[in-house]
Design a protein around this nucleic acid. Structure first.
Length: 1056
RNA sequence: GGGCCCAUAGCUCAACCGGUAAGAGCACCCGACUUAUAAUCGGGAGGUUUCGGGUUCAAUGCCCGAUGGGCCUACCA
């Protein structure tokens, strides 16, 4: 450091700072200097810290949820970069899937599959491709503005051929492991638009509707005139009935109904509601009760003739199903495997087979001649009439329930089995759970709670979608059933002999693969992959693994860190975990920080229509990105809870943290410039107590911040920072100001500068990951003239705590001092003596002399702050206070258990001598228990005396309340001084300008002022004159406790 | 319907995963200070820790139930 003394080393700093404007300058500078790239360059070759960025859908604009996630995705990588790791950050875009198709459907006015086919899949897909990058520039702007460093230029797109090829590879891996199969899946199906709907689409619109509720009698094969009663709200599914389900553990009754002269089976718990409580009431009586178990396997006559031939294939029997409940109906569920998920599962499990007499438009086929061409809802009345006529309908009621509607065609959705491809998640569930057990979550409970539960209940994952804009399933098949799964572009080229440039359906569907055995050519099957399959493949696909970047992938898998919202439990977290476990038996990430939902200030969802939240861009321009970043990580949202977004909260961060911090910095820069201070780097050499204290606090902050960041507890960072900044401004600078005002550069002043410099520059480094802008500005200015300075704070190493500088006893002593001052001010208020009237003595009381010794160096600060003439120290507590003891419940409770109460009562009766014994370190025996000082809590209370006293567990103080006339007068003189200063200020005199102060005052004030006129003159840089009618460039009249004080200020003449 | 999370001062949040006078900040009222601070500092008021049971020597915290909110999930035919 070879800076010339007296040269102003630092850029001048204004106390009034426009943070957002400053941030914009920093952004421009980062861009110009390519600082982000420089941090990557600087860490090249260092160990990798791997971060995976979950891709957002490219179809919307960024909102607070994205901002929040973006901030979490920035802070952690910045931190680990400063810790010396190489942290690549690559943005990604989720390009495929429904949201994009929907945009295009809206644009092209398309409502169903046929229209797409009519238009041409190539045209359709290219239209989709065309809008994917629509919002990238908005995203880039916002991501940049919040200070997130991420490579958006080389972002991965899930629609890139390299990405899609890796997805194929992932699929092929699963295929080879036998984890892929094709089956039916029961899905929401819209007969209005002849297409299956995704869950997302299907649950958009639930409505209350009334449906028929039929109690239908199925006659048993082997027991004439005996029927099993089943309940259904979908009469149209009855032709497809292939089974009846009971629960094996439920009780069923066989009862005779004289009204219909038949015998029925139904659940014991429900027979009365069916026969007695409803109208018409039947004359029925129970014959016997059996377990459902006893009914299993019994066969019944097909209700309707259409599929009667299925009897030979195992249909028309009574089976067990867990989904049978006793809440409503008869405790017997009619099973139509094609038209319900539970039905499907139960049917499959029991070999009932499957019939599906609906065509793609939802109309009955010729398999059911009576209903041919009818829609399900049209079939209902026909069925009801038929059942009634054939005597199969016991009851016909109506129920009101919620039903999903098609949001496009306004028709109720039905459930219908469609062909679908699956990943056998259930087969590898244990592996997935084991992989999950290796991960660390914030908040912890999610891993085994919400997410863990989800894994435990995981079902096979349906990965195919009958759509167009997505990665095609890489399966080719011919009519004879020969099937090939293709795992790469090259393989497809080899197999087909066709050059492949793009993997979307409108390219690869044209490609056929000749049959290896000379049969008909293999064609690609129809569906595309669920886009969640693609985002789950992201760790492999972003690298193009295994075709490219093998080494990069291997180094970066699994990720050290990911961060997304709580909604990804069922989304990205899940698909990542399933694929990671399936492919590599590994969790693809080690740490995950889960953020909660950002709500508007009114607790509702943020809604563009309601305009119940501030525009993110405007907010950032108003308060700055640093403030937003701190606000968000200091909220419950980083613990996966929701946050009510409050603009005033962001403003508070600016006021409570950023401005205070800035003011400390600007204080330093202005005085350092004034004095030509140039750092030598020897702050440690200072033996000044506050210098040592603030360095200790700084190192404690560093240690805490590292510990919290290593545990990914971002929410603990801001509180520690806040208390540090508070101490820096309100204790360190406030009590140290005099040092900085000294003339010249005495050693103690120089060391104070060194200390403050060290603290500010280090704080900038500590804060760099959190408030990257402000930290950058301060660091760069404070680094001027240093040979070892980096161009940017973000190229610095994150500070490590120097334990040698940490002094817990000193931190405790200063905390006691702060407490003592607080109580001192409070006492002054109690005894009604203002701060300007000096008091004679403050006594600091603590039983431990060592504690007093530690505080002794701080006595001068206390005397000054509390305006007392002397500070006394006393360890004789009993001379000042009455002591009592109370049990330390935590300590004793663990030991004593039930005897706690007894001992606690005895502790409260301890004599002062006993307490003293304890304080001296000896023990006292109570009810046979040895009690030591640690086992009790000493309470202190003032004792009658002429001193005002206040006690706190950490320290007690007493103030001598005596005010002599002398003291009173001095107080009055200070009042006058203050008024002169004020008048000077009002007269706009320069700080160093000598003035003439003409004063008119009477009574005590006059006496006090007159007696100390020389003191007043030197304190206020004035020539004080007592006159009848003050004059000057400014004349001000003050009121001091009812007495008038008139002051006139004029500049002193040059002569003096 | 199921799962998970949440409920503490008017508002936003703490409280060392059972320990005994529940803490901040903002807002409010009063006061002080104003030679770093679009400030700052002190004081005051404000709580049956949503409600009801239970476990325990001890519950804001654990258990059960209720109420309210949120997220996820789900065709009880």
């Amino acid at each position: 450091m070879t800076t010339e003394p007296n040269a102003s080393l630092y850029e001048p700093v204004s106390a009034a700072v426009n943070l957002p404007a400053q941030e914009r300058d920093v952004l421009a500078w980062w861009d110009a200097e390519k600082t982000f790239e420089a941090t990557l360059e600087a860490t090249k070759g260092a160990p990798r810290y791997s971060f995976y960025d979950g891709p957002p859908f490219a179809t919307g604009l960024p909102h607070y949820g994205h901002l929040l996630a973006g901030i979490l995705k920035d802070i952690v990588p910045r931190y680990w970069t400063m810790r010396g790791y190489h942290v690549e950050r690559r943005f990604g875009w989720d390009c495929h899937g429904l949201p994009v198709e929907q945009e295009i459907n809206k644009q092209l006015n398309i409502s169903d599959r046929k229209q797409v086919l009519a238009l041409g899949v190539d045209t359709y897909n290219e239209a989709c491709r065309g809008i994917v990058k629509r919002y990238t520039s908005e995203w880039q702007r916002t991501v940049r503005r919040i200070g997130r460093w991420v490579d958006m230029e080389n972002a991965y797109y899930t629609m890139d051929p390299t990405f899609m090829q890796s997805v194929w590879w992932v699929f092929r891996q699963l295929w080879d492991k036998g984890l892929i199969y094709e089956d039916h899946k029961v899905v929401h199906y819209s007969i209005g638009v002849s297409t299956a709907l995704s869950n997302f689409e299907a649950t958009q619109d639930y409505r209350e509707v009334q449906d028929p509720a039929l109690t239908v009698a199925f006659e048993l094969e082997d027991e004439p005139n005996t029927f099993v009663l089943a309940w259904t709200t979908t009469p149209w599914t009855l032709p497809s009935n292939l089974g009846l389900a009971v629960h094996r553990e439920h009780d069923y009754v066989k009862l005779h109904d004289r009204t219909t002269a038949r015998t029925y089976y139904l659940a014991a718990a429900l027979w009365e509601s069916v026969f007695l409580h409803a109208k018409p009431k039947h004359d029925a009586s129970v014959m016997e009760t059996v377990k459902g178990e006893a009914l299993l396997g019994r066969r019944y006559k097909p209700l309707l003739p259409y599929f009667a031939h299925k009897a030979s294939e195992g249909a028309f029997k009574i089976i067990h199903s867990d989904h049978v409940t006793l809440d409503a109906g008869t405790g017997v569920v009619h099973i139509a495997p094609a038209y319900g998920e539970d039905d499907f599962r139960a049917g499959k499990l029991n070999g009932l087979g499957l019939v599906n007499p609906l065509d793609d438009d939802g109309r009955f086929t010729a398999e059911v001649p009576d209903l041919e061409g009818k829609l399900p809802k049209e079939a209902d009345p026909v069925m009801i009439a038929r059942l009634k006529q054939q005597g199969s309908l016991l009851r016909h009621d109506t129920v009101t329930h919620k039903v999903a509607f098609c949001y496009r065609s306004d028709t109720p959705l039905i459930f219908r089995a469609v062909k679908s491809w699956f990943v056998r998640v259930e087969a590898i569930r244990d592996k997935v759970i084991a992989a999950n057990a290796t991960t660390a979550w914030v908040p912890e409970h999610l891993r085994d709670g919400r997410f863990g539960n989800w894994l435990v209940g995981a079902r096979d994952w349906a990965i195919s979608r009958n759509r167009f804009w997505g990665t095609p399933l890489p399966v080719w098949r011919n009519a004879e059933g020969e099937t090939v799964c293709v795992g790469s572009i090259e393989e497809l080229e080899t197999l087909s002999g066709v050059k492949v440039t793009d993997l979307h359906t409108h390219f690869v569907d044209k490609i056929t693969i000749p049959s290896p055995t000379g049969k008909s050519p293999l064609e690609r099957i129809d569906p595309v992959l669920d886009c969640w399959f693609e985002s789950g493949s992201m760790p492999y696909a972003q690298a193009g693994y295994p075709f490219t970047n093998r080494a990069v992938f291997e180094e970066s898998f699994p990720a050290e860190y990911i961060a997304e919202g709580l909604d990804q439990t069922r989304g990205w977290f899940y698909t990542l975990m399933v694929l990671g476990a399936a492919l590599f038996d590994k969790a693809p990430f080690k740490h995950v920080v889960v953020n909660g939902l950002v709500l508007a200030a009114d607790g509702k969802k943020m809604s563009k229509r309601l305009r119940n939240y501030p525009d993110p861009n405007e907010l950032v321009e108003q308060h700055g990105a640093d403030a937003l970043r701190l606000y968000l990580i200091d909220s419950p949202v980083v613990r996966a809870q929701e946050i009510r977004f409050n603009e005033t909260g962001v403003r508070d961060i600016v006021r409570r943290i950023l401005l205070r911090w800035w003011n400390a910095y600007s204080f330093f820069v202005s005085y350092a410039s004034l004095d030509g201070f140039a750092p030598r780097g020897d702050a440690k050499a200072s033996d000044n107590v506050l210098d040592r204290w603030v360095l200790s606090r700084l190192n404690t902050l560093i240690a805490q911040t590292n510990a919290e960041m290593e545990g990914y507890r971002l929410y603990n960072v801001v509180p520690a920072l806040l208390s540090f900044i508070e101490g820096l401004t309100n204790t360190y600078i406030r009590f140290n100001r005099r040092h900085f005002w000294a003339d010249g550069m005495p050693e103690d002043k120089r060391l104070a500068f060194e200390t403050l410099y060290e603290v500010l520059r280090t704080t900038a480094k500590v804060m760099a990951p959190f408030t990257p802008f402000l930290a950058e500005v301060m660091y760069r200015n404070l680094s001027r003239g240093r040979a070892d300075a980096k161009p940017s704070v973000h190229l610095e190493a994150f500070p490590q705590a120097d334990d040698a500088l940490r002094d817990a006893a000193l931190e405790a002593a200063v905390a006691r001092m702060e407490q003592a001052m607080l109580m001192g001010r409070n006492l002054r208020e109690q005894i009604g003596v203002k701060g300007r009237v000096p008091l004679r003595a403050l006594t600091v009381i603590h039983h431990d002399p060592a504690v007093l010794d530690a505080m002794r160096p701080l006595g001068a600060y206390m005397a000054d702050e509390l305006n007392v003439q002397s500070v006394a120290w006393s360890h004789d507590e009993r001379a000042w206070m009455t002591l009592s003891a109370k049990a330390n419940f935590k300590k004793l409770g663990a030991r004593l258990g039930k005897r706690m109460k007894e001992v606690a009562a005895l502790v409260e009766k301890l004599s002062p001598d006993d307490i003293l014994t304890l304080e001296d370190g000896a023990s006292v025996t109570l009810a046979g228990e040895a009690i030591t000082l640690d086992d009790v809590e000493i309470r202190r209370a003032p004792r009658g005396s002429d001193s005002a006293l206040m006690a706190h567990p950490s320290v007690a103080v007493a103030l001598d309340p005596l005010v002599t006339p002398e003291q009173r007068e001095e107080g009055l003189a200070r009042e006058v001084r203050r008024r002169i200063q004020m008048a000077r200020k009002l007269a706009r005199m320069r700080l160093d300008q000598t003035v003439v102060a003409e004063i008119c005052v009477a009574g005590d004030l006059f006496e006090a002022a007159k007696a100390r006129v020389a003191w007043l003159a030197s304190e206020t840089l004035s020539e004080v004159r007592f006159v009848e009618a003050p004059t000057g460039v400014h004349v001000e009249t003050f009121d001091i406790d009812g007495d008038a004080l008139v002051i006139g200020i004029a500049p002193a003449t040059a002569a003096g």
